[in-house]
Nucleic acid binder design. Structure first.
Lengths: 250, 250
DNA sequence: GAAGATGGTAAGTAAGCACTTACTTTCAAG
DNA sequence: CTTGAAAGTAAGTGCTTACTTACCATCTTC
């Protein structure tokens, strides 16, 4: 779509719906396949569908990708290497928060980044879950590359903060699982189970903030009374489905 | 073409796998199909496989269930109506805790019941996720019948406790999502992503207790100091990588 | 001990699948 | 213009799939 011819400097005529350069077509087929696999899974998608969606014959698909499996693997590379492997832990806002030892910001920014990533790339979530269920290697790969890494990262941060006495001596693994659970479940709920937000309709910003708040201080009023933290913003936001005007953190 | 006259005094090998009563076979096929669908999904499982696993011919499968779809629907009824629809909210321990307004017990017991249910019926989790991804109606049905119900139930309990001032004025929907998220994500992690418990290896009891603790009081030490609640039991239980020598409770 | 219902099978069939083959069209460079 | 390589296709091929047909075997019952 956006790619210009690499081999020459022709002022390319507008798309005539036909003949594309090799690389371009390859990418287009890949894109189309990603969205189909994400929607219907690997087994649920036929090569014929892919070809049709790309506007070419099936043979064209097999010219670019020897087998369906190989097409799948190309998707892995495309997703996992290029965009998918989000370097959350190294996002500026997060590293910043870590340097400042601002626990609230660490979790809120990390949660927000995750939520935004999931919302923006719903396809990836679908792909991932299908892969996990079908026992494909993408699942394993993603787990090793991203999840494990993030767990280790967060765990060691938490351990440090525990040594400093800032955080209770709970198993850091449990804390990570709890927080990641809130976030992931929220994303999966929104994109898979409850697309119409019947159960809960809040913005990513509110979600990240509230989950962080719960993680850090819980919901019990009896422990320390109505705390006067940054908790000021907390309120019964319930089912209101529009009022979530938010600031950009960037 | 013709078989042996079966006049019967042959030392016939005791082929035990033989003739079952109709209902019995039906149930057996259903059981076998459940486990296969859970492992490989609806599309990923062939009727031939089901027949083989049940030790009968394919035709037998189609005698009991007119189509593959119908077999699937029979599974829904079997699971959703009979065992699946766990009446968590009405489990004795939970109703008990509610009557006593013991928030800790409410969440801990509910979480524990969920975790145990998932662990005991892993197949159901797999079935559910496959259904959700394949857009099957089981997903919708389950959502309406169980999840929505549980959300409403918990939400109203929380709202009451908020009116009584026992719980902070956070949107109850957010609280429910946070807690359910921890639990579900833990179950899904254990049964789908990390079967070897590389990331976190804790018992259901510990998980329910710790998640509840986090939900109620958070992990921050600064709010109220090292609280002397029932928090006494909290400790570094987790993924001790090489030794449990790092015991620094402040 | 025949009748009839019921449990069970072998051997199909048509449609759908991943993948091929043999061929045509386009187009830029020599 | 020629050429030849790359973009593209129509029409297969053989295998798998959900589902059928036509037939056997074994029990029960009077």
């Amino acid at each position: 779509m956006s790619k210009q011819p690499v081999t020459s400097n022709l002022p390319l005529p507008p798309i005539v719906a036909s003949r594309m350069a090799g690389e371009e077509r390859r990418l287009q087929i890949l894109q189309v396949a990603i969205s189909l696999f994400a929607k219907k899974g690997f087994r649920g998608t036929t090569t014929k569908e892919i070809a049709q969606a790309a506007g070419v014959s099936e043979a064209m698909v097999f010219r670019h990708f020897a087998t369906k499996e190989e097409l799948y693997k190309a998707i892995l590379d495309h997703k996992a290497c290029a965009s998918g492997s989000l370097d959350l832990c190294h996002a500026e806002t997060v590293t910043d928060a870590i340097a400042r030892k601002d626990d609230r910001a660490v979790f809120e920014q990390l949660g927000l980044a995750l939520l935004r990533h999931h919302e923006h790339d719903t396809e990836f979530l679908g792909l991932l879950m299908h892969s996990a269920l079908e026992g494909h290697e993408l699942a394993q790969m993603f787990w090793e590359r991203n999840v494990l890494q993030m767990y280790d990262f967060l765990r060691s941060y938490l351990a440090e903060r525990q040594r400093e006495g800032a955080i209770l001596a709970v198993d850091p693994g449990v804390i990570v699982r709890a927080f990641v659970g809130m976030i992931i479940h929220h994303s999966v709920s929104n994109s898979l189970w409850d697309r119409q937000r019947r159960l809960l309709d809040i913005s990513n910003e509110v979600a990240a903030r509230e989950f962080t708040e719960i993680l850090l201080h819980g919901i019990c009023a009896t422990t320390a009374g109505p705390r006067a933290h940054a908790t000021a913003t907390r309120r019964q936001s319930g089912v209101q489905r529009d009022a979530a005007k938010k600031k950009q953190t960037k």
